[in-house]
């Protein structure tokens, strides 16, 4: 999901090895390995092969064809794994993986403003799928064993890498806002407090807070801006959740996956506003986030 620019910078071998994007690659690979080892989370290796293959081929081809140079495939790798983990389709169908992967990567080249893409690729693909293909696609929910120790490993490495990647403020702001809004929902809805807090302990949120909402290429340019945006994401998520609690049928397509769809709504708007405020082309930030 992190879409670090493919800037070939001359760096010593050791320095390249600890670039944040490679830490993200390590973390997503860790999530995949642990999830598959403990719980068979993929549901079939053909799913992973499909998303990875389509993401990487699409990225390589489009970057070469449209921009004249082949992009670093780290971003496509992360997107491919994310989609393989998050997509839980009906029966044994493979097309959601293939088309989801294609749409995710292609969105980076089509849905752009001032040369920057607006959606996190996997966020876009998953949101699109659950909105227009709900008869075929659901999202990762409980296929992670509901085991606290496995999740603690992911949270430990996730927080460490978020700190190293300088996006810890985004992750922590989101978590703080989620808890605050959970308390608010608990007061409004009147159900058990743990029911409102429970979602953030689940696997989909691990992918969301460590890979999606922190994507440096689809977050705004300032630290304060990122904090504000992620708080708004949490707020919109809460509005969707309240829609679910109060059975607003209009919002049903949204409350199957509130955080994903909240980000899909808020993220591009924030990016658009941020880019409009930016004078000239983007600064070409690497993964400073």
């Amino acid at each position: 999901m992190t879409t670090a620019p493919a800037q070939a910078q001359a760096r010593p071998w050791m320095s390249v090895a600890i670039e944040p994007r490679y830490l993200i690659v390590f973390l997503i690979t860790l999530v995949l390995a642990v999830g598959e080892w403990r719980y068979g989370i993929l549901g079939g290796y053909e799913r992973l092969a499909t998303t990875l293959g389509v993401c990487i081929v699409t990225e390589v081809f489009l970057s070469w064809w449209l921009r004249g140079r082949v992009a670093n495939v780290a971003s496509a790798y992360i997107t491919g794994i994310s989609l393989a983990l998050l997509t839980k389709p009906q029966a044994n169908i493979l097309w959601p993986f293939a088309l989801g992967a294609f749409l995710a990567i292609t969105s980076k080249y089509v849905l752009t403003y001032r040369g920057r893409h607006l959606w996190n690729p996997s966020n876009f693909a998953i949101a699109l799928m659950v909105l227009v293909a709900a008869d075929s696609v659901a999202i990762l929910s409980h296929q992670w064993g509901n085991d606290i120790w496995t999740n603690l490993v992911i949270w430990f490495f996730g927080l460490l890498i978020a700190w190293r990647a300088k996006v810890l403020h985004v992750t922590l702001t989101y978590v703080a806002c989620f808890i605050a809004f959970a308390l608010l929902r608990h007061v409004i809805v009147g159900g058990p407090l743990f029911a409102e807090l429970a979602p953030i302990t689940g696997p989909m949120y691990q992918l969301f807070v460590f890979f999606m909402v922190t994507d440096p290429r689809t977050t705004v340019s300032t630290t304060r801006g990122r904090i504000v945006v992620v708080a708004i994401v949490a707020l919109v998520e809460t509005l969707i959740r309240l829609g679910g609690d109060f059975q607003l049928s209009l919002l049903r397509p949204f409350y199957v996956s509130p955080p994903i769809l909240a980000l899909a709504i808020v993220g591009p708007i924030a990016m658009f506003i941020d880019l409009r405020r930016t004078v000239g082309p983007p600064d070409g930030r690497t993964v400073k986030a």
Binding site: N146, D147, F194, A195, P203, G244, D245
Partner: peptide
């Protein structure tokens, strides 16, 4: 929806 809140939890 209500059940989904706790389905993915610990």
């Amino acid at each position: 929806y209500a059940m989904s809140k706790i389905a993915g939890a610990q």
